[in-house]
Computed example of a mutant assay.
Amino acid sequence: MSFVFRLISQDEDAAPSVAFQDSISPGYVPLWEKVGVYDALYNSDGRRGRDVSRAVAYGIDQLVEDESLGRMLPPTCRLGEAIRFLENVHRGCVTHASAVIETR
């Protein structure tokens, strides 16, 4: 089972639609806690993309600046995948700033 981060957009007269979606293994949770993005990812249901974009950007900076953080990951997880996921989430949150976050 993987963690899914979605941004749901709703135009005035249209039905809600998925504006952005990405997923990642739950094996990254200790890393998310260490770099300060756990709440922005896992406790953000109902918030707007703009509400978490700054925390996600900070997490990306932490990962890029300190490659030793990769040592806390289980063998099946990769630091590059963590960076890719956070960069995608950040881009989605900036692009769809008013979209509502939904996680699973």
Rank of each mutant, 00 (worst) to 15 (best):
G46L: 06
I60G: 13
L73P: 07
D39F: 05
L63W: 08
D22M: 02
E65T: 12
P16D: 00
S44Q: 02
S44L: 05
I8T: 08
I60E: 12
Q62V: 07
E67L: 06
R6D: 01
T95V: 13
T76A: 13
I60M: 14
R54C: 03
T103I: 15
V18R: 00
G36K: 07
S53K: 15
D39R: 14
T95C: 05
R47F: 06
V4D: 07
M1Q: 10
G80S: 13
E33M: 04
G46C: 03
S25V: 00
E67P: 03
D22V: 03
A82V: 04
R84F: 11
A55L: 11
C77N: 14
A57H: 14
S23W: 04
E12D: 12
D13E: 13
I101H: 06
Y38D: 02
P74N: 14
V4N: 09
D66M: 07
A57K: 14
M1N: 10
P74W: 01
A97P: 01
E87P: 01
L7N: 02
F5K: 06
L63F: 13
R104Y: 13
G49V: 01
M1V: 11
A19Q: 00
R78E: 11
E67C: 04
L86A: 06
A55E: 15
P30S: 04
F3D: 02
Y42A: 12
V18D: 00
E81D: 13
D51M: 07
E102W: 11
F5R: 03
V29E: 07
A82P: 09
